[in-house]
Amino acid sequence: LHAQADGRWRDGEQVYVKVCGHCHESGVGPVLKGRGLPAEALAPITRHGLSAMPAFRAAEIDDQALQALGDYLAQTPAPKAAPQSNGG
């Protein structure tokens, strides 16, 4: 997965790996994969933040990339073993 060029993300997986996964794969935030989470559910949380989670602006992850992230997450299987979690 290469670096983003000019602030444009290549696809949903790239957004996930380079931003979200750092918390949502390490137990800081809850697991997102395999939950059938649609983009419509992700968007408000991403844009407004939620409690411990920071907000992300369209300048960071634009609407198109956010949609692609939702499409990517919707088709991911649940991880085999949940990471050691202190998140909720």
Binding site: H22, S26, V28, L50, A52, N86, G88
Partner: peptide
């Protein structure tokens, strides 16, 4: 290296 593991701090009490 890149890691956001330390954001676990924000879960200690939670609530942002």
């Amino acid at each position: 290296n890149m890691t956001l593991q330390e954001f676990g701090l924000y879960n200690w009490r939670g609530g942002g």
